[in-house]
């Protein structure tokens, strides 16, 4: 169980004289998962990242990191900063060699010099830049520099990795490799990863935990359980086909390619093996993760199609659900929210 989210923001506001850059009444980023921050340029993504990286204190509001108030000065600030690393949108590499850059985080932490070379080599391997240690940074291409910056952040094995627009300067051929890398960082290193992109589809490919920022505000759909596909079966109950050939029925009146979301609160849960209506959206799976906070329980149900489900505490108690139980999730077609529809 991960009782505390990586970040919890409350009434966070950031402003510069005469302008509000960011206004977030409430937002959470779960621990140990990949989250995406989506929004057009100037939406406040970088502003939010700088707050999450503890580089800029917010003008107002409270930020919690792993359930504790974040610090923006003093020794605790340093301690927290050493668990969170931000990779800037256009990263700055220090003058010198790739090795000097990637080892920087180890150096400032006073890690013994003996472990620098293996950790640097490992981080460079992850970004496909093995053997680049002695290159001078001025001789790197833009894409290589970007990957060195990611390696530099990985070398310190942060609990939270913040990637501001990591795909912005990457050539098309490398995007899928970088997407795989983000998943790998999350799985292999167990790091919480938050990345930003202006590409909604890309965000959904990597995670179902997507936060959308528009003009400094979290847009209405802060969605999970995201699916996309072409609408089939014209009529009262059309559906889309998702991975594995499963159908998700949606409300009437849409056509073309859609991206939709099933709000976790709208999903009902019952033990597997009982009777069920076949025409509804029903999926069987196993409970693989449980978190509780604010009187609600957040569950992850992994099956052919995975879902995140939120239950009120009482309902959770009533059903006596435990980790590892097999359950059936169900929701009505009307509960499916259409986020984006393209002809």
């Amino acid at each position: 169980m991960n009782p505390n989210p990586a970040f919890r923001l409350r009434q966070i506001r950031q402003e510069i004289p005469g302008r509000t850059l960011l206004e977030v009444p409430e937002l959470e980023f779960p621990t140990g998962e990949v989250s995406a921050l989506v929004g057009p340029n100037g939406a406040g993504k970088t502003t939010l990242f700088r707050i999450l990286a503890l580089l800029d204190p917010p003008f107002a509001g409270a930020l919690e990191f792993r359930g504790e108030p974040a610090a923006f000065s003093g020794p605790r600030w340093l301690e927290l900063r050493r668990r969170i690393t931000l990779v800037h949108q256009t990263p700055f590499l220090f003058r010198g060699t790739v090795f000097q850059n990637v080892a920087f985080g180890l150096r400032v932490r006073g890690e013994p010099q003996a472990i620098w070379p293996p950790r640097v080599a490992e981080a460079l391997e992850l970004v496909d830049l093995g053997g680049f240690q002695d290159r001078f940074v001025i001789a790197l291409s833009g894409g290589e520099a970007q990957r060195v910056a990611i390696a530099r952040a990985l070398a310190v094995q942060p609990e939270v990795l913040l990637l501001d627009e990591p795909f912005a300067n990457v050539d098309a051929g490398r995007i899928s490799r970088l997407e795989a890398l983000i998943s790998e960082i999350n799985h292999r290193l167990g790091a919480t990863v938050i990345f930003s992109t202006h590409n909604l589809g890309q965000a959904f490919r990597l995670t179902s935990r997507v936060v959308t920022l528009v003009a400094g505000k979290v847009a209405e759909f802060g969605h999970e359980n995201i699916f996309s596909g072409a609408v089939e079966g014209e009529g009262a109950e059309p559906w889309i086909t998702v991975r594995g050939g499963w159908r998700i029925r949606i409300g009437p009146g849409v056509s073309g390619r859609v991206t939709c979301s099933v709000p976790p609160e709208a999903i009902a849960l019952r033990p597997a093996g009982g009777p069920g209506a076949s025409e509804c959206n029903c999926f069987e799976g196993e409970i693989t993760r449980m978190e509780c906070h604010n009187g609600r329980v957040r569950l992850r149900v992994d099956g052919p199609v995975s879902f995140r489900v939120v239950l009120p505490d009482q309902e959770f108690q009533r059903q006596g659900i435990r980790l590892g139980d097999r359950v059936v999730v169900s929701f009505t077609p009307a509960a499916v929210k259409i986020l984006e529809a393209k002809p």
Binding site: Q100, A103, F104, R107, Q113, W116
Partner: peptide, 8 residues
Amino acid sequence: MERRPKIF
């Protein structure tokens, strides 16, 4: 190979 990188 022993490295003695000079950062500062």
